[in-house]
Amino acid sequence: MEKIICSLCEKPASVNLQYAAKHLCSGCFVKYFEKRFLRTIREFSMIKPHEKIAVGLSGGKDSVVMLHLLAKLRRRLPFEIFAITIDEGIKNYRNTTIHIAKRECKKLGIALKVIIFKEDIGFNLDEIMKKTNSSACSWCGVFRRYLLNKYARIENANKIAIGHNLDDVAQTVLMNIMRNEPIRIARFLEPITNDEYFIPRVHPLLRTPEKEIAIYAMLKDIQIKYMECPYAHFSFRQHVKKQLNDSEEKYPSTKIRILNSFLEMKKHLRKWMKDEKFKLFHCKKCGESSSAQICMRCEMIMKLKNMA
């Protein structure tokens, strides 16, 4: 095969970054990747010294790589981390990723809390999907967000770190535009308020393309199992993801441009929108913070109970 050399040193290249018009060898890629992670944490002041960070750990490549990067960062910045894994109860899928979550936490010496869906919500995801034919992701997303926030707060975390990558963020922005949800765009990725029930979320991988996370894992020998959630097929997100990957191939930088344009627009959106739109209540049923009188989680549980 033809040899291509690294744009920064003389070694054979392993990676082609089309959006940067660069070829990098393994060593230069790892440095570039870790530097971007650090820069992103600083750009948004995601972690302050001595904070306690709850890592949302699904056991997939994004959150596992983030856990490794955060563990490494502790050598430079004094802060505390622990991980929370949510077990939704998805047969032939979640057991594998939970096993990985446990193994990686053990390897890195990080405490892990596994929260079982059924114990809090009353149903596991497989049971929910037998009751309804609407998208699994909408149920799962609401319950997972709720559980992460609740258990991060119980453990006195200052922040929750979420492994959303550049692809996830660009997809969400596009989906909200396509669904005409400007308020969701304004709220996306930023703490709404300093309500004591709400733990702010940070997204240290938001500038990192999804594929590069897999490259980093391979080069650093982090063992990942690449598998797809069995419920993912039916979602609108899949459609947007495919479109976005097509665009990125033909017009490199599309994803990062969507992110940057979103970050710029958001500043103005927040100013433009009236504060009431961001007002938080405490749910009348469970007491958690919510954008309505009754939170989505309690609303959805009532719906599920009525479906019998």
Partner: peptide, 11 residues
């Protein structure tokens, strides 16, 4: 041949 390579390389 066992090594990660850039996609624009010829094989």
């Amino acid at each position: 041949n066992g090594k990660l390579v850039p996609e624009d390389a010829k094989i």
